[in-house]
Design a binder for these strands. Structure first.
Length: 499
RNA sequence: GCCCUCAUCGUCUAGAGGCCUAGGACGCCACCCUUUCAAGGUGGAGAUCAGGGGUUCGAAUCCCCUUGGGGGCACCA
C-alpha cells in the first residue's frame, strides 16, 4: 500500500568516492521507504564546488545503483535526465530557489547581510578560544542600520547572508533517540546561509530542498544531531512544516571513533573491487545498528525490508567488523546459483589476466566444472585467483623447500614424484576423473610404505605450487593429464638442481 | 571550553520488571569429517549486563549520580 505522504532522501555530496557510511544511510532510508510504501529520493548536494567533482558524483550514483537500492526520484544512474516531479535533483541547478528563499528571509528581517571580513571572524574566534568560550558569531552586523549597510555596500564590500537565530529552546522527538532539546544559545550565533557570491551553504540548501521536495522523514547520521535545531529554525522561518527526524548511530573504526579513511577502508568501491557481493554488503550494513530481533543472520534484502523498523535502530555506534563481513559474504557466495556466480567471477578473472596474475581466462564451461570445489572456498570473488589461479598460469613456481613434505627428504620426494608421474602417464586418459585417479595413487603409496597424505602433498605442491588447494584429484582433473605430467616433470627437475 | 549523546561477551547483537544461573552470530579453542585448505557438524572458553545509589516482593530492563566513550560547535557537507 503506497503512501505518497512518506518521502525520504539520501543527499550525498560529491566530494569523495561513495562512503560506506553514506551507503548505509542510503540503505536505511531505502528500507524505511520500502517498508512503509513511501518514496526514496536521491539528491546531489554539489554546492561545494571547490571540493566536488563530477567523477565523484558518477562514483556515488554508480555505487548506489550497484548496491541494488534504487531511488524513485533523482538523477538517472544511466546518465539520462532527472526522474521525478520535484527536480532538478542537483543543488547547483536549484540556485534560484535558494536565492528566492533567502530574499524572503531578508525581506522579513529573519536574515541580514553581514559584512564581517574573514580576518575579523578569525580574530573573534581566537579571542573566544583564549577566553575558553565556545566559538560563536558575535553579531557585529546583526543590527546595522540601512545607512550603515548602504555605506558598506558603497565601499564595494560584498556581504554574506546570515540567518537570525532566535533565543529559546528547540526540540524534536527523534524517531530513534526520543526527545532531544537544545538551547539555541549553543548554536554558535547567527549562521551564514549564503556566501558573498550568492551561493548557498549546506544548512540552507537542505532545508529549502527538503521543504520543496516535501520530505517527510529526515533519516541521517548521528553527526547531524547538532545541526537539527538550525534546520528546524529554518523550516519555521520558511513557513514549512518540520519533518520527522531519525538519527542513525555511526559506523565506527576499530578504536571507536567515527569511521574514517585514515583508520579504515571507507570507499564502497574498494569493497566491491575485493569481490564483496552486494547481497553480503547490504546484509552486513543493515545489521550495523539494527537487528530483526530474531536469530536469522543471513537475510535477503526483501526480507530485511519486511522486518525493518526505525524504532528498533540502536542509539550507540557500531564498530565495523571486517571478519563478520567476510563470513557473511561467504554465506552469500555459497547461495549464488552457478550461472550467477560465473557471471560475477568473470570481471575478476579478466582483471587478473590484465594485471598478468594469470595467463588466460577460463570459459564458462571450465568455470562451471570448477564450481563444486571452489564455491565453498571463496570468502570473496577476487579470492578465486588466489585459490585456483595456478590453473590458468603457464608456469608455476614450486621451490624445493615447499616441494618436500614435512616428514620427507628430497630423495624420497623425487622418487615419489617420478613414480606418480609414471602411474599417471600410463593412466587411461578417458577415465581421467577424480574417482579413477585416487585408488591407484593410494595403492602406490601403500606399496612403497608412504603415507598417502605425504604422497598427495608432494603431488599437490608439484602441480599447484602451493600447500593449500582444493581437493587434489579434482585439481588434477581440472589441470588435465598433459599439464599435470609437465608440472610433475618440472618439479623433479627443480629437486634435482643443486640447492 | 561549551552543547548533544551513548553504555549487554574481543566484535555485531537478543533482551522493552519476573521466561536471564543473560540467548544467537563472527572470531578463538577442541573434537568429528578429511589427502591439504575450506565448507559442514558437535562441544568449549568468553559479559559480576561500566560503577554506585535508589524505586520494587523482584531490575540488564525504571529513576538519579559518577565514570568512560562518541558526535558536534566553518563563507565543508
Amino acid at each position: 500500500m503506497p503512501d505518497p505522504t512518506i518521502r525520504v532522501r539520501i543527499a550525498p555530496s560529491p566530494t569523495g568516492p561513495l562512503h560506506i557510511g553514506t551507503a548505509r544511510t542510503a540503505l536505511f532510508n531505502f528500507l524505511f521507504a520500502r517498508h512503509v510504501g513511501g518514496t526514496f529520493i536521491l539528491r546531489i548536494e554539489d554546492t561545494d564546488v571547490a571540493r566536488g567533482s563530477e567523477a565523484y558524483e558518477r562514483d556515488i550514483l554508480e555505487g548506489l545503483d550497484w548496491l541494488g537500492i534504487p531511488w524513485d526520484e533523482g538523477p538517472d544512474p544511466a546518465g539520462g535526465g532527472d526522474v521525478g516531479p520535484f527536480g532538478p535533483y542537483r543543488q547547483m541547478q536549484r540556485l534560484d530557489l535558494y536565492r528566492a528563499a533567502a530574499d524572503r528571509l531578508l525581506a522579513a528581517d529573519l536574515a541580514y547581510p553581514c559584512f564581517c571580513t574573514p580576518e575579523e571572524l578569525a580574530a573573534d574566534r581566537a579571542a573566544q578560544e583564549a577566553a575558553k568560550l565556545p566559538p560563536r558569531y558575535v553579531g557585529r552586523c546583526a543590527r546595522l542600520t540601512p545607512d550603515e549597510r548602504a555605506a558598506r555596500l558603497a565601499e564595494g564590500r560584498r556581504p554574506v547572508t546570515r540567518f537570525r537565530v532566535r533565543s529559546g529552546v528547540v526540540g524534536w522527538n527523534d524517531l530513534v533517540r526520543d526527545r532531544i532539546e537544545i538551547d539555541t544559545a549553543n548554536l554558535g550565533g547567527d549562521f551564514v546561509i549564503l556566501r558573498a557570491d550568492g551561493t548557498p551553504l549546506y544548512h540552507f540548501t537542505v532545508v529549502v530542498d527538503d521543504a520543496a521536495m516535501e520530505i517527510s522523514h529526515v533519516i541521517r547520521g548521528e553527526d547531524h544531531v547538532g545541526n537539527t535545531p538550525k534546520h528546524i529554525l529554518l523550516f519555521e522561518a520558511l513557513g514549512h512544516p518540520v519533518p520527522e527526524f531519525a538519527h542513525l548511530p555511526l559506523i565506527l573504526n576499530p578504536d571507536g571513533t567515527k569511521m574514517s579513511k585514515r583508520k579504515g577502508q571507507t570507499a564502497l568501491d574498494d569493497y566491491r573491487a575485493e569481490g564483496f557481493l552486494r547481497e553480503g554488503l547490504v546484509n552486513y550494513l543493515a545489521y550495523l545498528g539494527w537487528s530483526p530481533g530474531t536469530e536469522e543472520d543471513v537475510l535477503p534484502l526483501h526480507e530485511i525490508v519486511a522486518r525493518f523498523d526505525l524504532a528498533k535502530v540502536h542509539k550507540g555506534g557500531a564498530k565495523f567488523d571486517r571478519e563478520r563481513l567476510e563470513w557473511l559474504n561467504g554465506q552469500w557466495i555459497r547461495r549464488l546459483p552457478p550461472d550467477e556466480l560465473i557471471d560475477r567471477l568473470r570481471p575478476f578473472l579478466e582483471r587478473a589476466a590484465a594485471d598478468g596474475r594469470i595467463d588466460r581466462v577460463p570459459d564458462d564451461e571450465e568455470l562451471r566444472a570448477l564450481l563444486p570445489i571452489v564455491q565453498e572456498r571463496l570468502p570473496t570473488l577476487a579470492a578465486i585467483v588466489d585459490l585456483v589461479g595456478f590453473l590458468w598460469t603457464d608456469t608455476i613456481r614450486a621451490d624445493r623447500t615447499t616441494l618436500v613434505p614435512k616428514r620427507w627428504d628430497a630423495a624420497t620426494t623425487s622418487e615419489a614424484l617420478l613414480a606418480a608421474r609414471e602411474l599417471l602417464r600410463t593412466h587411461d586418459q578417458v577415465t581421467w576423473e577424480a574417482d579413477e585417479l585416487e585408488p591407484p595413487l593410494r595403492a602406490l603409496a601403500e606399496s612403497h610404505g608412504w603415507k598417502a597424505g605425504d604422497l598427495f602433498m608432494a603431488i599437490r605442491v608439484a602441480v599447484t605450487g602451493r600447500t593449500a588447494t582444493p581437493p587434489l584429484f579434482d585439481t588434477l582433473v581440472a589441470l588435465g593429464p598433459e599439464r599435470s605430467l609437465a608440472r610433475l616433470d618440472a618439479a623433479t627437475e627443480a629437486l634435482a638442481e643443486p640447492a
